[in-house]
Every structure is written in structure tokens, then in C-alpha cells.
Design a protein around this nucleic acid. Structure first.
Lengths: 104, 104
DNA sequence: TGACTATATAGCAATTTAGCTATATGGCTA
DNA sequence: TAGCCATATAGCTAAATTGCTATATAGTCA
């Protein structure tokens, strides 16, 4: 029961439609969002504000979802000017997929 | 947000230490459990009673965990004599892993 | 520096999940 | 058939999760 400790954190982070949607949106920042001024859509990621709009929840609720994904290691925040940009951590995501494949 | 409907069910079913443990135990029924009389450990699976003991929760709580896993399609119940035996549905589990790999 | 703006946190209500005890169900077995 | 035993369901409490509003924080820009 203590075997799957890390995998369990990842599963809990993903077991939410909102958070799955964030990862989905971040797969194609250029396709899903308009151009950005202060952060590069690819290199830095997508502005928290835009993700919040897409999630259709309040700013604090979106912030918490983003924190869960960040804490699980699936997304990376980058602070620039007044904003925080988020992008997928593909290495971490791949590592999780491997763990699922091997341990479940 | 409606894209991941089936994947989300699976993720929610797996996002629990107890249920991960059930799948872990069912990976090696012969190694993890003593011989059975009324059901074959491999062909039929492991008696619900024994899984309940290993989970260290009450019978109704264990039954509910097993139902969640069954509803998600990860385990298959087989009724025989007085008992219910559970085994992994490897095909369904593989399908889930593929979905994770391709959609996350 | 000072005001403004984006994000984070606090704190509360509603919902979901997980646990329990008590009891119903349903099918062996004597 | 009658009783018994494994499993399922009902119904409750406690904890965790998700949403909100209000507010604190912190960094930017004039």
C-alpha cells in the first residue's frame, strides 16, 4: 500500500476534469491561445489569466488547480513581469506514464 | 474538458492507495495468497474475503472499493459457490495505459 | 516612492469520498 | 425446506475536495 506513493500523487492530480483540461490546453499553446507579449507561448508557457478564463472558474480556484498540477510536477511556472506562465513538464509527464505502465 | 471522459473515470478509480493495492495484490495471486478450494487463483481470481483482510478495512468498505474498480473495468468478478473472486482485466488495464500515453 | 495589477492565501459553504455499524439479500448445504 | 454464510446495501459521520468572496502579497511601472 506504500508502494505507489509517487504514482498516487500523480493520479490524484490528474483525477479532475479541470486539471486534465489544463494539460490538454498546454499541449498546443499556439493553437489554443492568442499571441503573448511578455512571455513566449512555447518557451515560457501560457499566462495563468488565460487558463483561468478557459477553466471557467474564479481566479483563486484556478490558482489552486494550477498549484496541484505544479506540486505534482506536471507543469512548470515561470514568473515574468507581472505574470506567471505555465508550460507542461514533458519529462515529468513521460516519467509518470512510464511509472503507470510499469507499476499498475 | 469533455475530451477525457473515460480516462477520468479510470484515473479516479486509481487515485486511491487501497485500490492501487488491490491491483498490486492481484498481479500475483499465487504469491500473495494461500491456495483456494472453490475458485482457481489464476482463472477466477482472489476471494473478496482475503482482499478485505489485506486492505485492513471493514467488509462493506472493501466491497465498495472493489465495486469502484469493477465499474471502472479494471477487475472482473466471478461468482462461484458462496464467494466472489476478483482478477485483473489485463486488456482493460492495457487499454487505459494506452489512453494515458496518448491523451495526457 | 506610490499606485496598480496579477497572483496567492484565508476562510467559509457545498459536495464527494471513505470509513463505520446494522441489516438485507441470495445462494449453498445440510 | 431451513439455516447459514458471503456479499451487498442503507444510512450515518468524518475527512477531503472544490467552489466561492474577501483580502493579502509582491512585483511592475509611472
Amino acid at each position: 500500500m506504500a508502494i505507489h506513493v509517487d504514482i498516487e500523487t500523480g493520479l490524484k492530480a490528474l483525477a479532475s476534469d479541470k486539471r486534465l483540461y489544463v494539460l490538454e490546453l498546454l499541449k498546443d499553446p499556439v493553437g489554443n491561445f492568442p499571441p503573448q507579449v511578455d512571455g513566449d507561448l512555447i518557451a515560457d508557457g501560457v499566462c495563468a489569466n488565460w487558463l483561468t478564463e478557459r477553466l471557467e472558474v474564479s481566479q483563486p480556484t484556478a490558482a489552486r488547480h494550477l498549484k496541484v498540477l505544479t506540486d505534482a510536477g506536471f507543469i512548470i511556472p515561470t514568473r515574468k513581469k507581472g505574470w506567471v506562465f505555465y508550460r507542461r513538464d514533458e519529462a515529468a509527464i513521460d516519467q509518470f506514464k512510464t511509472a503507470i505502465r510499469e507499476e499498475i
